[in-house]
Design a protein around this nucleic acid. Sequence first.
DNA 1: TTGGTATATCGGAAAAAGTCGATATATATT
DNA 2: AATATATATCGACTTTTTCCGATATACCAA
Lengths: 97, 97
Amino acid sequence: MNHLDVFKALSNKARLQILQWLKDPEVHFPDQPGFESGVCVGQIQQKAGLTQSTVSEYLSILQRAGLIESTRVGQWTYYKRNEKAFIELTQIIQKDL
Amino acid sequence: MNHLDVFKALSNKARLQILQWLKDPEVHFPDQPGFESGVCVGQIQQKAGLTQSTVSEYLSILQRAGLIESTRVGQWTYYKRNEKAFIELTQIIQKDL
DNA sequence: TTGGTATATCGGAAAAAGTCGATATATATT
DNA sequence: AATATATATCGACTTTTTCCGATATACCAA
């Protein structure tokens, strides 16, 4: 985990918001049934009110930082949080920072 | 504490470095005697290899984010870490993020 | 009060990030 | 194969951040 990339990924209102939504998918994405593998890009885009390309890029920034992970199922890509990364982040802040 | 400002403040190599230096001032600033009130700007600037104005701005960004605090003594401004902020940050990541 | 040193602030040039529309790719359906 | 849908990538433009030099301010010492 690269601290700097993680903090950069977190330095954006929309991306923070997406992470929070993904914490409770049932609450924030009631349209989509089943959340085992995450929430698909379209649902996130709709809620974020940004263009598809922007949301897609934001998700990939979050993923490169290790904060979320993706699963491709058919034509959909589902994204969900990688909770381990958040735990690791708090540890890094306590030790290295 | 504003998450976003904190993460932005942490999204810079030099600023992260400064925070790490300030964690062990005796080790990283052996020239300066006494660290109760922190390390002065000049010492940090010298070590960072950036201009005085840049370092001064960076310190003020870190301070606005609440991560460090300053004390003016004569012509010097001493900066030191605000450890409470780091604790609060880990709590925010665990709860709100 | 004059000059010296430490820090802060201002203005700007260059680099990076934000954001979009257009297009490409991958998959599904007929 | 042709079409439709979901996502990713590209190119361009705008806004923000980085980082500097110059200047201002605050304090100290003679």
